[in-house]
Design a protein around this nucleic acid. Structure first.
Length: 400
RNA sequence: GGAGAGGUUCCCGAGUGGUCAAAGGGAACAGACUGUAAAUCUGUCGGCGGACGCCUUCGAAGGUUCAAAUCCUUCCCUCUCCA
């Protein structure tokens, strides 16, 4: 087969391709006409942080780019004001246009850590939706029936459980589908939960007499808690803008049985390398070291070898040997002595006096390694001292 | 438009005049333990002051009462059934 190599790259780490047999035709056509395929991926700039779960399909886009195709990023400035209802059980408060603009810029910055800017086209939904009149919208909506949408699990569940479901939310797949018409997409990337929306794009293209796009669906990356999918609202994510130290630490906190999953979807290692790691893991070698390799790989992707090594050393020092991290906030005091409660609130190690007292009572507070026994303790400030709360909160006190 | 149900602390969810800062679960945080920021166990979990107390909180605004999350009035929002 002519496209063996291409198919192998495209299929790697992909959960599902619908419909698979059309993909080969697209590739053949592209080769014959010399016209690159247009690979669509839509983002809703509802926040400004991208996490590595988002990047799974983005990395796929990069692979398409490396094969010579064009990546088209849709900035969903209209859909962002709706909030994607699929895969969610609750409405999201709409955003203002200003927030959307601000988010979009920061978003792209993070995507370019993976994408090839030369082969990336960025398009805004407002380019086409901004010009539409109500008649266009009605025509578009008339192509679908309510039953089609209620057949979708998310909508049905929301409806049946009595959770509010706004009319505008039902519009979401329609808008996303029309994007594919507007940019003439050949392939749309997304996580598996996007299947419905992406297939709506096929319907839409068909209604407009166009060739239908193909859905290339990536698996959903599990969050660091190992229970839910990676998501901002659940705070179980590793962000592109996280510090190397945080990326490393968060990776180390994932459950052991997620290790291979992360290797597959969050690193650039080849299938063979990952198979070797899997074998090693199954042979009973200490998962900690394999997880450290994973953490190193992830940090390396975004910050380079050097930073990865540093993050690992730091992690070992702080968590394995109980040492103090290197980059801790410093506070200079001119007073000769202060009571411990004031110190804890001034350094923002504790958010309230009540919390500070609680932490002391629980034996969580120490100064230069000596446990603080009483909330009435007066600290003599001299030179540099390290104040510590729990395992992860530190402050350096400097006598000014 | 008609008839019902409901909006509680970060989330879910009990509570229907004082004993409620408000059960229980989840999340989070801390301690012990561990190869780990995993798992498990224990504890904490509105703010201020050493408990007693005070302040802020139960959709919003008023009102009744010595006293309200709990009663009344108006308003906002959600769901169900009927049309």
């Amino acid at each position: 087969m002519a496209f063996d190599k291409e198919m192998q790259i495209i299929l790697k780490g992909v959960e599902e391709i619908v419909p698979k047999e059309e993909l080969l035709k697209k590739l053949e056509k592209s080769e014959k006409t010399g016209k690159p395929l247009r690979i669509k991926y839509g983002i809703d700039p509802t926040g400004s942080e991208v996490h590595i779960g988002h990047l799974v399909p983005i990395r796929k886009m990069r692979e398409f780019q490396d094969l010579g195709h064009i990546g088209v990023i849709i900035i969903g400035d209209f859909t962002a004001q709706i909030g994607d209802p699929t895969g969610k059980d609750e409405s999201r408060p709409p955003l203002t246009a200003d927030q959307v603009n601000a988010n979009a810029e920061r978003y792209m910055e993070q995507l370019y850590t993976v994408l090839d800017p030369e082969k990336t086209e960025v398009r805004w939904q407002s380019e086409w939706f901004g010009k539409m009149g109500l008649d266009d919208v009605l025509k578009m909506l008339g192509k679908f029936t309510l039953a089609q949408f209620l057949a979708h699990d998310t909508f049905r569940r929301r409806y049946e459980s009595g959770t509010p479901l706004g009319m505008h939310e039902i519009m979401y797949p329609v808008l996303q589908g029309y994007d594919s018409v507007a940019i003439d997409a050949d392939i749309e990337l997304g996580a598996t939960e996007q299947k419905f929306n992406i297939l709506t794009g096929r319907d839409m293209q068909r209604y407009f007499g166009m060739e239908e796009q193909i859905a290339v669906l990536s698996p959903i990356l599990m969050g660091t808690d190992g229970v839910n999918k990676m998501s901002k609202s659940l705070n179980n994510y590793i962000a592109v803008f996280d510090t190397p130290k945080d990326k490393y630490g968060k990776t180390m906190s994932i459950p052991d049985d997620l290790i291979i999953n992360y290797f597959n979807y969050a690193t650039l290692l080849s299938v063979e390398e990952i198979q070797a790691i899997d074998a090693e893991l199954k042979s009973g070698s200490n998962p900690k070291f394999i997880k450290q390799r994973l953490a190193r790989e992830i940090v390396k992707m975004y910050h380079g070898e050097e930073e990865a090594k540093k993050a690992e050393e730091e992690f070992n020092a702080v968590f394995s040997q109980g040492k103090i991290p290197t980059d801790i906030p410093e506070f200079t005091f001119t007073e000769n002595e202060m009571d411990i409660l004031s110190l804890l609130s001034e350094t923002e190690l504790c958010t309230s006096g009540g919390e500070a007292r609680r932490m002391i009572k629980q034996g969580a507070v120490s100064l230069d390694g000596n446990k603080i026994a009483s909330k009435d303790e007066i600290i003599k400030l001299e030179g540099e001292m390290i104040l510590k709360v729990g395992k992860r909160r530190f402050a350096k006190l400097i006598k000014g």
